[in-house]
């Protein structure tokens, strides 16, 4: 009998060195992929890969955060932590998706947006905010898949959409458990407790109504049986893409707005007056 994993154990799985990265999913899910580079403003951010591909015999726009595999590639990709150029490149490609009526599939795997001097100088917050705004009204279906790490605003910056999937051992959080532990618990070694308190596992987020579907992973995590993971993800993507593409764009956008509008829980007293 399998014991249920703790949130911290799942985070360790999400960060496992053998866990497949976005490029593995890219290879396994899409044919005829053409990578497109650059934000047309400043540079090209290797932490985010964007391009055109074929999924299930249809053209789609693909966006994903890539951490890299070898030490060298990890350095090049800045460990999957994007700069503003990454978000702006993603937005440029999404606008193209809208123009040519192609659905967008966006894959999240980042510890967070990069905290650096250049990133601040070039408007990290502005780039993310712009994406949140534009994605909320982009006139084409957007499916979001959280692959491993959903690190705060850096993840959300490519994460607004019509349907949000999350892999079983992935997590998605407002702050890293380590960051939360050091700020709120005043002790960075309390990350496992913070992970528990923040309710960041796929299961917790599904129960809270913040994600739409959990993609099951084989026992021991996605790296133990990548084929199995891909097959689960592929069938979910096929089903959801078909459903979203059938929708009139106006209805799609109205439903997206209502979905975003309804995030949040609070107490409302009987109306004043």
């Amino acid at each position: 009998m399998e014991r249920k994993l703790t949130p911290w154990e799942r985070i360790l799985l999400a960060r496992h060195p053998n866990r497949p990265t976005f490029s593995d999913f890219l290879d396994a899910l899409f044919d005829n992929f053409i990578e497109l580079h650059g934000d047309r403003l400043y540079g090209d951010d290797p932490a985010i890969i964007t391009g055109l591909g074929t999924f299930n015999d249809e053209s789609v726009v693909v966006i994903g955060q890539e951490k890299g595999k070898s030490v060298q590639e990890k350095m090049k990709r800045n460990f999957g932590m994007p700069h503003p150029e990454g978000y702006r490149k993603a937005l440029r490609i999404m606008k193209m998706a809208e123009k040519f009526s192609l659905p967008v599939i966006s894959f999240i795997d980042t510890a967070g947006a990069y905290p650096g001097i250049g990133a601040e100088e070039r408007g990290q917050a502005w780039a993310i905010a712009q994406n949140l705004k534009e994605m909320s009204v982009l006139k084409t279906p957007i499916i979001v898949v959280v692959l491993s790490e959903g690190g705060s605003g850096g993840a959300l910056g490519i994460g607004v959409g019509d349907y949000i999937m999350i892999l079983e051992n992935a997590y998605y959080s407002v702050i890293s458990p380590e960051g939360c532990a050091s700020i709120l618990f005043r002790d960075s070694s309390k990350a496992p407790e913070a992970a528990e308190a923040l309710k960041i596992t796929a299961e917790d987020l599904y129960k809270l109504g913040l994600v739409d579907e959990i993609i099951p992973e084989p026992n021991g995590g996605a790296h133990q049986d990548f084929e199995g993971t891909i097959s689960n993800l592929k069938s979910a993507l096929k089903r959801v893409l078909k459903k979203l593409k059938e929708k009139d764009v106006k209805i799609l956008l109205e439903e997206r707005w209502l979905k975003l509008r309804n995030y949040g829980r609070f107490y409302e007293e009987a109306k004043e007056k």
């Binding site: 705004k133 959300l156 407002v174």
Partner: peptide, 24 residues
């Protein structure tokens, strides 16, 4: 964002930005 409300807080970013898109 308010950490104590977890991902609900993060998603307020998307919610408020979507409202500003409508205003725009």
């Amino acid at each position: 964002a308010r950490m104590q409300e977890g991902l609900f807080s993060l998603f307020q970013m998307a919610k408020t930005s979507a409202a500003i898109a409508r205003l725009s």
